[in-house]
Simulated assay, not measured.
Amino acid sequence: MILVFSQTGQVARELQRRAPEARYLGRDEADLTDPDACARAILMIRPSAVINAAAWTAVDRAEDEEALATRINADAPGAMARACAGLGVPFVQISSDYVFDGTGTRPFKPNDPTGPLGAYGRSKCAGEEAVRAAGGSYAILRTSWVFSAHGSNFVKTMLRLGRSRERLSVVADQVGGPTPAGAIAEACLTIAEALIHDPNLSGTYHLSGTPDVSWATFARAIMAEAHLPCEIAEIPSSAYPTPARRPENSRLDCADLANFGLTRPDWRRELPHIIHEIGDTP
C-alpha cells in the first residue's frame, strides 16, 4: 500500500483518481509543520512506498516566512525520507525548477548545479539535500508550471481573468514546460513501483510538459482553447515585479525519464480536457 502525504493538492487529487486504494494523509493526520509526526505516521502505517505530494507553494510569501517554508519543504521531507530508509521502502519527493537560477537557454539537467533565486527555491533545494542524505531508496522528481482543474494555478487564473477582460499583460521572458498534474501523478506512481523492485534507480529526475513556451504563449493557448477573445500582450518580467524573483529559464532536460519508460507529456493535448473539467468551455 502506497502512502501519500496530501489530500487536496493538485497532484494529490490526480493521484486519488489513479490510485484510490492508496492511503492519503491530510493536515489533520500529518501536519508538515511537525516533521516528527510525519515520520511517526510512516512508521505506524508501514507502507510499501511513500509519495510526498504536499508542500509550501506560496512562492512570494516564502520571502517573509522562509523558516516556515523550510520546515515544510525541507525538514518534513527529510524526516519522511529517514523513516522510509529505516523501513527499507522508497520515498518519492516532488521538487521544483526553482532550485535553479534560470540562466541560459538550454534545459537544465538533473545533475546541473543548483542556485535558487529566492526563499522558496532554497527551501526546495534543502529538501532535496535532506532526502538524499537520508540514505534510503528515493526519487526526487523536479517539475514546473503545474496545472490542473484543481486548486490554484495559471490556467484557472487566465480563464477567470479572460472572461472579464479584453486584454491581459503576461510575462514573455520566462520560458518553461507547463506540466499537467495528472502526468506528475502517473510518474510518481510508476517511479514508486519501480523503486520497490529496483532501489538502484534512486536519483534525481525531471518531468515537465512539452513544448517549452513562455507564459504569454501559454496564456494565448488557454484563451484560444476556451474560445475567449481576450488579447494577450507580452511584457518583460521587469514590468511585473514580485517579491520573489522567478527563473527566466525553467526548461528541464527530462531524458532520464526513459529509465522508467516515461516521456514528457504534451500539455497541448491535456489542456482541452482540463479546461472542459473546469467548466469554462462555452
Rank of each mutant, 00 (worst) to 15 (best):
105 T>K: 13
97 D>R: 04
215 W>Y: 13
217 T>M: 13
82 R>E: 14
130 A>W: 00
42 I>S: 01
264 R>Q: 15
38 C>R: 06
78 G>R: 02
216 A>Q: 01
87 L>I: 08
68 L>V: 14
189 L>G: 02
6 S>Q: 12
250 S>V: 05
271 L>N: 00
79 A>F: 06
89 V>Y: 00
233 A>M: 10
56 W>A: 09
154 F>V: 01
167 R>G: 02
13 R>K: 14
248 E>M: 04
41 A>D: 09
36 D>Q: 15
112 D>V: 09
279 G>E: 03
188 C>D: 04
138 Y>S: 03
210 T>G: 07
63 E>S: 08
282 P>D: 05
277 E>C: 05
254 C>T: 13
3 L>R: 02
107 P>Y: 10
236 P>W: 08
126 A>L: 12
76 A>W: 03
110 P>S: 10
220 R>P: 01
233 A>V: 12
86 G>T: 06
55 A>M: 08
253 D>H: 15
77 P>L: 13
155 V>N: 00
217 T>R: 12
14 E>H: 06
146 V>I: 15
218 F>Q: 04
4 V>I: 15
193 E>N: 09
118 G>A: 14
207 L>K: 04
53 A>Y: 00
79 A>H: 05
144 S>H: 11
135 G>M: 09
39 A>G: 14
101 D>T: 09
127 G>T: 02
108 F>H: 14
100 F>T: 07
254 C>Q: 03
3 L>D: 01
265 P>R: 04
197 H>M: 06
123 S>D: 04
206 H>A: 01
268 R>S: 11
218 F>N: 01
229 P>C: 13
149 A>Y: 00
152 S>Y: 12
193 E>M: 05
47 P>S: 07
202 S>G: 09
261 G>P: 01
132 R>I: 13
143 T>C: 12
58 A>S: 15
107 P>F: 09
8 T>L: 06
74 A>M: 06
110 P>A: 06
231 E>Y: 03
19 A>P: 00
64 D>R: 15
279 G>C: 03
185 A>M: 05
208 S>D: 08
134 A>K: 04
62 A>D: 02
72 I>T: 03
3 L>K: 00
189 L>H: 05
129 E>M: 08
20 P>K: 11
186 E>N: 06
55 A>G: 03
53 A>W: 02
205 Y>E: 11
23 R>T: 15
